[in-house]
């Protein structure tokens, strides 16, 4: 197997040895095992690598062609309307976009949920299902490194997905010579909303997905949690509005991820009336919303850490 025909002068991969006037002699040597003396870059590097790999994985990069279909399709579905909106604005010469950045995200919230349902299990269920976890935890990284990398990667994937159409709108708006200051403020508000949404949604999505090694269950469970809670809250809000309990409407909004985001955007980012009866949380109620979102994000992180404590070797 190992042929030891490498002369010391040849060096690693030793090929052409300059001869005295003779043609350079090319050879392929099996140089046997070589150790590794280079740098070992520790935990934070490993965490960043896992983050990058998971973020790429969320869009199917580095995975089979089949894994690329869903994320690419969803990205197109979400971005195409923005392209159309820009085209309409340019041709009609309107002085503003057909919808604000925040409204755009709210309008396509369902598609974002679908992306989350497809990609959160992709991020965590596969490692559980194929029992890859021991390979991670037999390396220097710790549970918290794994969870942080996966959480941030999923949140970034959702953020990229949400921000991409907004960026299209923004660039389009500038090309259409709409007011620069107005557009920039609105775009920034849209991005801020998208960032909060990304953190909240991916936290909930990952907690649900990490419960099961079966990807199919994970997809169904994420959709169920996100949409059923929204449906239940909306129904109750309509009922409360109808029965002259309008004061309860904003408080009910605390109980589903979607209405949390709508309420926050209404209270702080000036998005239109999100709830039935043209209601929305006041600024004071908005602070409660903010606290609830922060608690949910921290809680998701804590639950994930707990989940992976047990999922070691």
């Amino acid at each position: 197997m190992t042929t030891d025909n490498l002369s010391p002068a040849g060096g690693p991969g030793g090929t052409a040895r300059p001869g005295n006037g003779a043609a350079p002699e090319s050879r392929i040597h099996d140089i046997g095992y070589r150790g590794y003396d280079g740098p070992r870059l520790g935990r934070s590097y490993a965490r960043r690598s896992l983050f990058a790999q998971s973020l790429r994985g969320a869009f199917g990069l580095g995975r089979s062609a089949r894994s690329k279909i869903v994320p690419v399709l969803i990205t197109c579905v979400l971005t195409l309307p923005a392209v159309i909106a820009v085209a309409v604005t340019m041709m009609s010469g309107a002085d503003q976009l057909p919808m604000t950045y925040v409204e755009y995200t709210a309008g396509f919230e369902m598609v974002i949920t679908l992306f989350l349902a497809a990609q959160a299990p992709q991020a965590v269920s596969l490692d559980l299902r194929y029992r890859t976890m021991p390979l991670y935890f037999s390396r220097p990284i710790e549970t918290s490194d794994y969870v942080r990398a996966k959480y941030l990667a999923t949140a970034c994937a959702v953020l990229v997905l949400t921000a991409l159409p907004q960026a299209v709108l923004y660039v389009g708006a500038l090309l259409a010579k709409l007011d620069f200051a107005d557009q920039t403020t609105a775009f920034a508000e849209g991005l801020a909303g998208a960032a909060v949404l990304a953190l909240l949604y991916s936290g909930i999505g990952l907690v649900v997905a990490a419960l099961t090694p079966r990807r199919g269950f994970g997809v169904a469970a994420v959709i169920a949690v996100m949409m059923l809670s929204f449906a239940a809250v909306s129904t109750l809000q309509v009922a409360a509005d109808f029965n002259d309990a309008k004061g309860a409407v904003p408080w009910l909004g605390l109980f589903s991820p979607s209405t949390l985001i709508y309420g926050l955007q209404h209270a702080f980012l000036g998005a239109g009336a999100p709830f039935p009866g043209n209601a929305g949380p006041s600024t004071a109620q908005g602070l409660v919303y903010l606290l609830a979102v922060a608690a949910l994000i921290a809680g998701s992180y804590g639950l994930l850490i707990r989940r992976y404590r047990k999922a070691g070797l």
């Binding site: 590794y36 520790g42 590097y45 690598s49 390396r139 990284i141």
Partner: peptide
């Protein structure tokens, strides 16, 4: 390659 990076090896290595 991914596992090597999890062990701290730089990308080229």
């Amino acid at each position: 390659v991914h596992m090597a990076r999890m062990s701290g090896l730089p990308p080229t290595a």
